[in-house]
Design a protein around this nucleic acid. Structure first.
Lengths: 206, 206
DNA sequence: CTGTGTGAAGGCTTTCACAGCC
DNA sequence: GGCTGTGAAAGCCTTCACACAG
C-alpha cells in the first residue's frame, strides 16, 4: 500500500468525492462501489480506488465502500472537520463579491474578517463582515489564529501584501490576483486566475 | 521541433507569459531572455523555452526573444486578438459578483448578457448588463454568435443548464458550480471550485 | 462471482545536458 | 561567451491487469 504524502491532485479529487458522498449520505445510501462513485465524480474507477487507498483499507471486496466510514475518514484527513476561519484581503470588485458569496460557508469556511487599504471601501452595505484597515491585520491574524487568507488585491501589490500576510502568520493563500506569488517554504499558495481560465477556453474553441 | 496540438498546461502558461510580456512592452523593453522571463513567470527557463518552441523559432540565440514578436504570435495563437463576447448564466451571489468584476474586460472578454431563471434577480442596480430570462438564451447565443459561457448556477441544476447551453451552440463553459459536467466532444469545460481550492489549502497546512 | 487493492506498464510533463547559432 | 532549441532522462500520474477477499 502506498503511504506517505498524498499527491496534490489526489487531494483535489478527495474533496470532490467527499462532496458526492455527502449527497449519498443524505439519501440514506450506506454502501457505494468504486464504479458508481467514480462515474458521478467523473473519474475512472481505478483512479478512485488508488486515491482512496491513500486513506487505508476502506473498501469491502465484493461489496464496495461504507459511505459513513469514508466520510469520517475524509473529514479527518482533509481537515475540514473544524470550521476554518478565513480572512479576505482586498475589498475591490471581486473581493466584495466573494464576501457576499455563501459557497464558502456551505463548505465550512467562514470569512471572519476583511481588510483593505482604501478607506472608502470599508463600509459595505449589507455585508456583516467587518472591513478593517490593513494595519489591523497582523493583530487580527494572531488573535484569532487565522491560517488561511483569500487575496483579491490588484496584481501590482499582490506580492507585497502576500509577504506581509505570511509574516503575520498566514500559512495558506488563495490568490485571485493575476500575479505569480513567491512565498517561503512554510506557506502554500493556490492561484485562481479567472481571466486566464477564459483565455484557456478560447484557445480550445476552433 | 515539436508541432501538433499544444498541451493544455502549456496553454495556461502561455497566457501567463503573455501577461508578463505586455508589462515589459509597456516599459519599452524589446528583448527578453528565457531566464528572466521565466523568473518573473515563476517557471524554469527550460520549461519556458519548451513552451515557446510550440510557437516556432522565435528566439535569437545569444540574445533572447523579441517582446513584440512574441506578443503578436501569442495573441494569434491564443485567439485573444478579437474581443470575445461571453454570457453569464445564473445571477446569484457569485454570478452577480462576477458581473461587477472588471478583470474579464481587462483581458478582452466582455460579458454581453446575463441569464437567470428567477425573475427577482433580473434587475441589478448599477450593472449595465441586461439580465434576461432563460428562455431568451438560445436565440441570444445564436444571434450574437456567442461561444463562451460562464456558469454560476447551483450545483444541482448545473448539468441540466450545461446541456441546454451546448445545445444552443455554446462551445466552452467556465464552470463555477460544484458539479462535474459531462459535455459532448465538441465542447470544453474548465471548472473552478472555490470551496475545493480552500479545502485543498487546508490540507497542506499542518 | 463481485468488487477492492496494487504491482507493473504506459503516458504525459518537466528537467537535464548539450549541440548549435548569433 | 551567451542563450536558444531539442533529444534524452527522470519524475509524476494514470491506466491496466490481475491477485485476492468476501
Amino acid at each position: 500500500m502506498t503511504r506517505g504524502p498524498i499527491p496534490r491532485k489526489t487531494v483535489y479529487r478527495l474533496s470532490l468525492y467527499y462532496r458526492v458522498l455527502q449527497r449519498l449520505r443524505g439519501n440514506q445510501i450506506d454502501t457505494v462501489s468504486s464504479a458508481s462513485l467514480a462515474k458521478v465524480s467523473g473519474v475512472k474507477p481505478t483512479q478512485l480506488r488508488k486515491d482512496l487507498a491513500y486513506l487505508g483499507h476502506f473498501g469491502t471486496r465484493g461489496l464496495g465502500y461504507s459511505v459513513e466510514a469514508l466520510c469520517t475518514k475524509l473529514v479527518e484527513v482533509m481537515g475540514t472537520a473544524s470550521l476554518q476561519p478565513v480572512i479576505l484581503v482586498g475589498v475591490g470588485q471581486l473581493g466584495s463579491a466573494l464576501l457576499g458569496y455563501d459557497g464558502f460557508a456551505r463548505e465550512g469556511f467562514e470569512i471572519v474578517g476583511a481588510f483593505d487599504m482604501d478607506h472608502s471601501r470599508r463600509r459595505m452595505g449589507k455585508i456583516k463582515v467587518k472591513t478593517m484597515p490593513m494595519e489591523a491585520l497582523p493583530g487580527f491574524v494572531k488573535d484569532n489564529k487565522i491560517k488561511i487568507a483569500i487575496l483579491t488585491v490588484p496584481g501590482h501589490v499582490a506580492q507585497e501584501v502576500a509577504n506581509s500576510l505570511v509574516e503575520s502568520g498566514i500559512q495558506a493563500i488563495l490568490n485571485f490576483a493575476p500575479a505569480v506569488l513567491q512565498v517561503p517554504e512554510n506557506a502554500v499558495v493556490n492561484s485562481v486566475n479567472l481571466a486566464a481560465e477564459l483565455e484557456n477556453l478560447s484557445y480550445f474553441i476552433r
